[in-house]
Write a protein that binds this DNA or RNA. Structure first.
Lengths: 329, 329
DNA sequence: CCAGTGAATGTTTACGTAAACATTCATTCG
DNA sequence: CGAATGAATGTTTACGTAAACATTCACTGG
């Protein structure tokens, strides 16, 4: 900065003013400074800036390393929204979803150049971890409950699951089987609970729960079992990948979809419309979740908002061709 | 730091030594300093550290916002490898793949707290952009040619495509159709070129090219056309998503896979094994690409390596059930 | 027993920037 | 015509850290 100032024949402060677009600089002076900057290839040093200003203009995102599609898309939306606000996004990958790893990520975070944190993580791992967060750092949690302890932004998991089950009941199915996600996922839990409640509220008996691990393979294995259940005419899979595996298993067992068995997914991944048959599913607005996460932490940083609470992003039923009325008996 | 020093009854420099794990501090003193740190909730200020040390321990990654699966997985591997080396990863999303956007990302980068840059981007967009990169910042490019101008790490696209075509020819198919990716993608180009060359080298005539845009939908539309080609018994799709759409189109048109038509994909996405039928495809090692990218920039930063060149990560044929010998005529 | 040695710790300084305050100087107005 | 005004620019300082150098002091060997 000093070199630029010398070359332009001004003081360093004037260079600073130009570099920050502050008023009170003659057009003439500004041009000279800009010319000097270009000639010397000047770049403001962001470390010095951050030190001086006390902020990094950077958001940290903690998430699992080999994460799900949905998390990736949320991350993508976060990065885009943050960029629009002039913030960069720093990734804090957690290799394995264990408490130790999460604690490690949070303690690294303590030393990290970050103004706020967005967490995309299962709540139970979060509980013990947050203690090591530097106090005063705004946090928003995606994909979790804990609205009483943190600010949470999430898809309306329960609403979506309810919509899925209702759709199948409305088509005339006596009950709806459920291919659930892993036990330790809160999103999976909420979908499962909503499934059970909707069924019970409609006076139906929930069939035994079938559990997968989000992967298409686990959906396939579960599907093999479900194909042999004679009374099974409708299945609500907790995500599209498992629905894909389910579809394959039913096909291999000669069970027609949707004529004999209806299948509905959750997420609406881009490929869902190309499944065989095209999958009816619950659309999640990941972009909106990401946007609201960024809005949330920025609001906290500007002290506009405070306190906790949960913001729910609505889902949408996408009707395609994997659901139909049950076969006549 | 001063407060900690005062509380521990030592100088700030000793606090610094403890905080950096330097030798030459009595165990007794160290304990006292650590206790003071804990009591005051001291966190080293990373801006000041970066300013003092001249490095941020952060890698920048430039990539498209709504990116492909593969890019996401590469990013994931980069973040993991970087974390292992003590580096954080900052994302520089490019909203739209236009020259303007890329230029914008690069100029934001100039002010960003980043020691090196990994670019996951099509080369033609890169060419005009790099000029604005601060000189001396190590760059590694993934998923691109340009080995003469940058250090490049990439999947062996040509090798993979060759393997795919050979596999189909070995099964006895007279020729292989190709469902290509978008024209402006270099990965797609290389796969297409290798397809053509392998066919020509084997003395076969390449059928007309069918083009998609990586999406399952475009694969579906292309598949509708291919289903009506009487001579078409084998198709090499440039990625698994398009293969999925292709599978659906062929199914709808009553063309059996693999009995009548063989289909091979590229990528080996986790879902590929659950397609109908499970997809034979070319496995890409995204994790290795990411790892090598990080290794590349770190090597450059330590001045161990320099100059350009391309590192190719080998692919692997994964045989599943979407390919078979052609039907007897 | 004293000079010499080296480990432990302290002091000074600079990293690049921007806020706060100070100065200059042309203009305006009574 | 001189004081007052305010825009343009300059000077000083502090942000938190760590490298370089300085000091202290206990201990060793001659």
């Amino acid at each position: 900065m000093g070199d630029v100032a010398r070359l332009a024949g001004v003081s360093a402060q004037t260079v600073s003013r130009v570099s920050n677009g502050f008023p009170g600089v003659t057009e003439e002076t500004r041009r000279q400074v800009l010319a000097a900057m270009r000639e010397l290839g000047y770049r403001p040093n962001s470390a010095a800036r951050a030190l001086r200003r006390g902020e990094f203009r950077t958001l940290g995102v903690i998430t699992f390393s080999l994460s799900t599609m949905g998390n990736m898309r949320t991350l993508d939306a976060i990065a885009t929204s943050a960029a629009r606000e002039g913030y960069a996004v720093t990734l804090l990958p957690v290799a394995v979803p264990t408490q130790d790893e999460v604690n490690g990520a949070f303690s690294r975070l303590g030393e990290l150049a970050v103004d706020a944190v967005i967490v995309i993580l299962e709540t139970h791992l979060l509980d013990a971890a947050t203690v090591s967060l530097p106090p005063g750092v705004p946090v928003v949690v995606a994909d979790s409950d804990a609205g009483d302890r943190y600010t949470v932004v999430d898809t309306d998991q329960a609403g979506g699951a309810r919509e899925a089950v209702r759709h199948l009941l409305d088509l005339g199915h006596g009950t709806v089987w459920h291919l659930a996600g892993p036990e330790d996922s809160f999103a999976a839990q909420r979908r499962t609970n909503a499934w059970r409640e909707t069924l019970t509220a409609a006076g139906r008996t929930p069939p035994p729960l079938v559990r997968g691990d989000w992967s298409a393979d686990s959906g396939y294995r579960a599907g093999l079992r479900l194909a042999d259940e004679p009374g099974c005419t409708a299945v609500f899979a907790a995500n599209d990948q498992m629905a894909l595996g389910l579809l394959r298993a039913l096909h291999e067992r000669g069970r027609l979809v949707p004529e004999e068995v209806s299948v509905i997914g959750f997420d609406d991944i881009p490929e869902a419309s190309s499944f065989l048959p095209p999958l009816t599913t619950i659309h999640q607005d990941f972009a909106e979740v990401g946007r609201l996460c960024v809005e949330g932490v920025l609001g906290k940083m500007r002290r506009e908002t405070s306190g906790h609470g949960t913001t729910l992003v609505p889902t949408r039923l996408v009707r395609r061709h994997s659901t139909a009325p049950p076969p006549n008996r």
